[in-house]
Amino acid sequence: MSDHAADHSTDDHAVDIDKHVKVYITVFVTLMVLTVVTVAISRLHLSVPVAVTIALFVALVKGSLVAGYFMHLVSEKRLIYAVLALTAAFFVVLLALPVLTHEDGFWIPQAAEPAAAHPEAEHK
C-alpha cells in the first residue's frame, strides 16, 4: 500500500537526517551572528536610505535562511514553488502600493514641474 511506501521513504530520510541537523546548527549560528550584525550596524547611525538598505538586506538573508533550510524550501516540490511564485508576484504589487499613491512628480521628478508650468504660460 502507499502507506508502506511513505514509511519507506521516511527511513531513507532518516539516513541523511544527521546531515540535516548539521545544516540546522550552521544556519542557527549564522542567524545569531546576523542578528548581532544588524543591531551593531544600527548603532552606527547611518543615513536612513543606507540604513534601510542594509537592514533589509540582512533581514532578507536571514529570512531566506529560515525559509530555505528550516522550512525546507531548498528542496520543495514544484507545486509549492508555483504557489509561492504567484504569491510573491502579488506581494510585489502590494508593496508597490505606496508608490502608486504618489502624484506624477514621483515618476518624472525633473520634467514634471516645468511641464506643468508651461501650459499656464501659454494661457497668459
Partner: peptide, 16 residues
C-alpha cells in the same frame, strides 16, 4: 513563518 515575520519586524520597527 512566525519567526520569519519577526526577522523583518525587528529591524523595521526597532532599528530604523
Amino acid at each position: 513563518f512566525v519567526d520569519l515575520v519577526w526577522i523583518f519586524l525587528f529591524p523595521t520597527l526597532y532599528l530604523l
